[in-house]
Structure formats: C-alpha cells, structure tokens
Amino acid sequence: MSDKKNWPLWEIFVRSKNGLEHRHCGSLHATDAEMALENARDVYTRRNEGVSIWVVESKNITASNPEHNGELFEPAQDKVYRHPTFYDLPDEVKHM
C-alpha cells in the first residue's frame, strides 16, 4: 500500500424529484467535489433516482452523539401542549 494521500470520503444526498427534500443515500470516495458529483451520478442514480445531487465532504459533518440523546431530545417528551390534541374543544366545532 502506498502512503500517498487517499481520496477523501464524501456523503451523498439526492433529491428524487422536485418538491421533495434531498435525502442521504450513502457515501463514496473522490478527489474533489466535482468528481464526487460525477461518481455519485454513476453510483446512486443509475435508474433515474434523482434530479439533483448534493455532496459534502464527510469530515465537515458534525453529528450529535447518541449517548447524549437524553439531554438532547427528552425535554420535548413532556411538552404535550405543543400538540393540537392537548386542547379541549366542544364537539360542535368540526374543523379546527
């Protein structure tokens, strides 16, 4: 194995059609963003799966730590008043 520089890893996001969001679909290695786009076309959209591709070098993504999921997400769990079903309305009100 050579100790020369390896191609960096890129995360690939594909919009399947206009109106829908880009979704993460996997990753690949490429020398730069342009090559990452071209390779993503061949690896992830061989059957018309996309109309738009985003590539982000993996090292630029900051991810939350699942071990901190408690502190991060639990505060939302006891806030039932953020949901419409928390509020009592008379039956006569049909649409609200």
Binding site: S2, K4, K5, W7, T31, D32, M35
Partner: peptide, 15 residues
C-alpha cells in the same frame, strides 16, 4: 495506482 495519484494531485493543484 498512478491514475489515483494523478487525480489526487490534479485536485490539489486546482484547489
């Protein structure tokens, strides 16, 4: 190997 190395060198030059 030389293709991979050349592609990397090219990307670095561009950058």
């Amino acid at each position: 190997e030389w293709v991979r190395d050349a592609a990397m060198a090219y990307a670095e030059k561009n950058k």
